[in-house]
Simulated assay, not measured.
Amino acid sequence: MHTRGNCCCCSFEDYKLTTEWLLNQTSHRPKIAVICGSGLGLLAESVTDKQSFRYQDIPNFPITTVPGHEGRLVFGNIKDKSCVFMQGRFHLYEGYSLCKVTFPVRIFKLMGVETIVVTNASGGLCPDFKVGDIMIIKDHINLPGFAGQHPLCGPNDERFGIRFPCMSDAYSKELRRLALDISTELEYTDFVREGVYCMVSGPNFETIAEARMLQILGSDCVGMSIVPEVTVAKHCGLRVLGLSLITNKVSVDYSREEKVHHDEVLHISKMRAEMMQKLVYTLVSRCHLVLPSINTN
């Protein structure tokens, strides 16, 4: 289990200490946070007035161990919007508890962040998807959550959110619509999709039988992240946009010989990162124009 005795291993005092340390170290007061997935750290390079901190230098912060995750928290401005970027995230398969995996999201909430953009690399399950497509996430399937690996297990802290948050609107319809509109403006419609993301714990890639099962469940792509952060963000009342870069096609055919390698994932991420960067940059600069939905939680 991710916690001992089903209690969160991070106290409110831990979150408060880290938040106060960051607020004392930077004059930035971000309203938007972006979590960069495998090979997508370039998303943070477009900011001005940049200030960065290594994860190992931030009190209570975990340290990323995965290639393609630089392990830096980057503050800066996109036009006149103050933002914070995570260059690298944390995963269950690294051995972290889910409260550590989602630790930064609650820090962002306490810092005053209102909108969070989560990105990652994933394997395509939908037959219509191609390598290099960008999928705007409209919903997700939390397989680890079905097995009890859930970031909201344990006592609920009302200072962050209610005991039973609704997840039927986890991904903001308004932000998804804005992302689609921007994709049209940028002439990205040939490779921007919408679909359902499925999270598995990893670190192995899926077997063919597992991939076939996920297709039957309605998954368009599969990966090893995003869902815990989205769940905690929704619990905290943040608006969420999810973008998943399809870096490989998941095999569902026993006659095929192709095998997935992490190096391939990083290669495709690097090729498409510039376009993803432009999409995120434009969206961040305009997201203040999108009125948030009324939170019904």
Rank of each mutant, 00 (worst) to 15 (best):
G71Q: 00
G223W: 02
A33W: 10
K109S: 03
T26R: 07
P165G: 00
V74T: 13
V118A: 00
Q215C: 13
M86Y: 07
S122W: 00
G145P: 00
P228W: 08
L180K: 05
V66P: 00
K270P: 02
N248S: 08
I268S: 04
K138I: 12
L245P: 06
M167I: 08
G123T: 10
F205A: 11
V230R: 01
D128F: 14
L17N: 12
H267D: 11
V118N: 06
E210Q: 13
L17A: 14
Q277K: 13
P67D: 00
R4N: 00
C126Q: 15
E174Q: 12
V284M: 10
S244I: 06
V290D: 05
V232S: 01
T115R: 15
Q149I: 14
L175P: 03
I208H: 07
D253C: 07
T64L: 09
S46G: 13
I116A: 03
L73H: 04
C166A: 12
M199V: 06
T184D: 11
C287D: 10
K50A: 05
T282C: 14
T115C: 11
R89Q: 05
V34F: 12
Q149W: 11
G132P: 15
C221K: 02
V101Y: 02
I63H: 09
V240L: 01
G88I: 14
K81C: 11
F160L: 08
D80E: 13
V196E: 11
P165T: 04
R159M: 13
F191Y: 14
L152P: 00
L22Q: 07
R72S: 08
A44E: 04
G154M: 01
M213S: 01
G37F: 05
L175V: 08
A209V: 00
V74R: 02
R272H: 13
V265N: 12
P155V: 08
L180A: 09
V66K: 07
F85Q: 03
I162C: 12
S219K: 01
R72E: 09
P67K: 14
R176T: 12
T207I: 07
F61G: 00
K249R: 15
K234E: 00
R29W: 03
V117I: 15
M167Y: 14
P144C: 11
R212T: 06
D14W: 02
Y254I: 12
C9M: 05
S251F: 11
C198P: 01
S183A: 15
E158V: 08
Y55C: 08
H2W: 06
D57I: 11
T282V: 09
Q215S: 12
I182Y: 10
R159K: 14
L186N: 03
F160G: 08
S97Q: 02
V66L: 00
V192D: 05
A33Y: 04
